[in-house]
């Protein structure tokens, strides 16, 4: 047998690691690509739903990235968006059904997120931009990386919104009771959706200020 063995790229080559790292900073899905803003507003009033949402998006994004990447050579380009949507929706409903049957408590927390995951544009964005043209393993890493980038922003926003809006972190009282006696009040505006947008805006501002690469040339 003289078949020359094709050289394999190591699993965590520099190129693959870049797929994991870039979405965390210079190619963040929320602050740089400005995708998935809708769900970032909806679920960040408290920290816990934000964490649950991040994990759910990670599972769905990684799995559908792999599935689309496996199918990529057979998908007719004219109906590729429909195919992607079917894969995402099937995946999400399947996960939801399994959770409902075996870990009912978690599925109750996820209830409203399920719909939000299907419509999360990060997922379709990554399927279209990456999974359609790459092998399953890089597609998997890309999915994990992007959902981490998404999750980090969600968690940062939710942290500040819960701290200033409710005085708690993960439901635990952080602002001492004494503060309230001196006239401190929770900021009701923080738990309303507009403040999520403003918080995301502040994060984008800080990030661009520190990373000049991100500033567009006139």
């Amino acid at each position: 047998m003289n078949v020359k063995k094709k050289e394999h790229e190591p699993l965590f080559s520099a190129k693959n690691l870049k797929l994991l790292k870039d979405p965390l900073s210079i190619n963040n899905p929320i602050t740089v690509q400005v995708l998935g803003i809708c769900s970032a507003l909806a679920v960040t009033a408290k920290l816990k739903p934000a964490i649950v949402m991040s994990i759910s998006v990670m599972v769905v994004l990684a799995a559908s990235n792999v599935v689309i990447s496996l199918l990529r050579n057979g998908i007719p380009p004219r109906i590729r968006i429909i195919v992607q949507l079917v894969v995402i929706a099937t995946m999400v409903i399947l996960v939801d059904q399994v959770l409902k049957a075996f870990v009912y408590d978690i599925s109750k927390q996820l209830s409203v997120f399920v719909g939000l995951i299907i419509t999360n544009c990060i997922i379709m964005g990554r399927l279209e931009a990456f999974a359609m043209g790459n092998k399953p393993w890089p597609a998997f890493l890309d999915g994990i990386g992007n959902s981490l980038g998404y999750g980090i922003i969600l968690i940062i926003v939710a942290f500040f919104r819960e701290l200033f809006g409710s005085g708690t972190i993960l439901g635990l009282q952080i602002v001492p009771k004494g503060f309230y006696d001196f006239g401190y009040e929770n900021n009701g505006l923080m738990i309303l959706p507009p403040m999520a947008l403003i918080t995301v805006g502040v994060i984008i501002w800080v990030q661009r200020n520190r990373n000049k690469e991100l500033i567009e040339e006139r």
Binding site: V86, A89, T90, I93, L94, Q97, V98, K100, A101, F102, Y104
Partner: peptide, 22 residues
Amino acid sequence: AAALLSAAAMLLKPFQDRNMAI
């Protein structure tokens, strides 16, 4: 996709109903 989802829904229904009753 339809077959997959219907199968999942049917197989998991008894477990889900039980959880809801509990």
